[in-house]
Simulated scan of single mutants.
Amino acid sequence: MGNVSTDFTLLKHIITPRQRAQKLPVDVSRLEKIIREEIPQALSKQAPANFPELYSNLNRYMASFMISCCLIS
């Protein structure tokens, strides 16, 4: 069994955003524009029936990606 204090310190280190976490190592603004503007515009006339679900999932994955980038950097 591990040391609780050491385990807690490690967990705290992993989940605490770092100072430089505000800036991602890559510019994702183009990807965000595609997801938020271009995909809905392109599919506005002929979207598949499950588009709302797919689009919601895509936005959720993008948010997870952004959070992951901040925690890793």
Score class of each variant (00 low, 15 high):
Gly2Cys: 12
Gly2Pro: 07
Asn3Pro: 04
Asn3Trp: 14
Val4Tyr: 04
Val4Cys: 03
Val4His: 08
Thr6Gly: 11
Thr6Met: 11
Asp7Ile: 10
Asp7Cys: 08
Phe8Gln: 15
Thr9Lys: 15
Leu10Tyr: 05
Leu11Gly: 04
Ile14Leu: 13
Ile14Arg: 12
Ile15Tyr: 07
Thr16His: 09
Arg18Ser: 12
Gln19Pro: 03
Gln19Met: 07
Gln19Arg: 02
Gln19Ile: 07
Arg20Glu: 02
Arg20Gly: 11
Ala21Ile: 06
Ala21Glu: 12
Lys23His: 10
Leu24Tyr: 00
Pro25Met: 11
Pro25Tyr: 03
Asp27Met: 02
Asp27Thr: 04
Asp27Glu: 07
Ser29Leu: 00
Arg30Ala: 10
Leu31Met: 08
Glu32Leu: 12
Lys33Gly: 05
Ile34Pro: 02
Ile34Phe: 09
Ile35Asn: 05
Arg36Asn: 11
Glu37Met: 13
Ile39Met: 03
Ile39Ser: 04
Ile39Glu: 01
Pro40Gly: 11
Pro40Met: 13
Pro40Cys: 14
Ala42Tyr: 06
Ser44Ile: 00
Ser44Pro: 05
Lys45Tyr: 03
Gln46Asp: 13
Pro48Gln: 03
Pro48Leu: 08
Asn50Cys: 08
Phe51Ile: 06
Pro52Cys: 02
Glu53Lys: 08
Glu53Thr: 03
Leu54Ala: 06
Tyr55Asp: 01
Ser56Ala: 09
Leu58His: 02
Leu58Ile: 03
Asn59His: 00
Tyr61Trp: 01
Tyr61Ser: 04
Tyr61Cys: 05
Met62Tyr: 06
Ala63Val: 06
Ala63Tyr: 01
Ala63Phe: 00
Ala63Glu: 08
Ser64Thr: 08
Ser64Glu: 12
Ser64Ile: 07
Met66Tyr: 08
Ile67Phe: 07
Ile67Glu: 07
Ser68Lys: 10
Ser68Trp: 13
Cys70Ala: 15
Leu71Ala: 14
Leu71Cys: 14
Leu71Tyr: 14
Ile72Ser: 11
Ser73Trp: 02
Ser73Phe: 01
Ser73Cys: 10
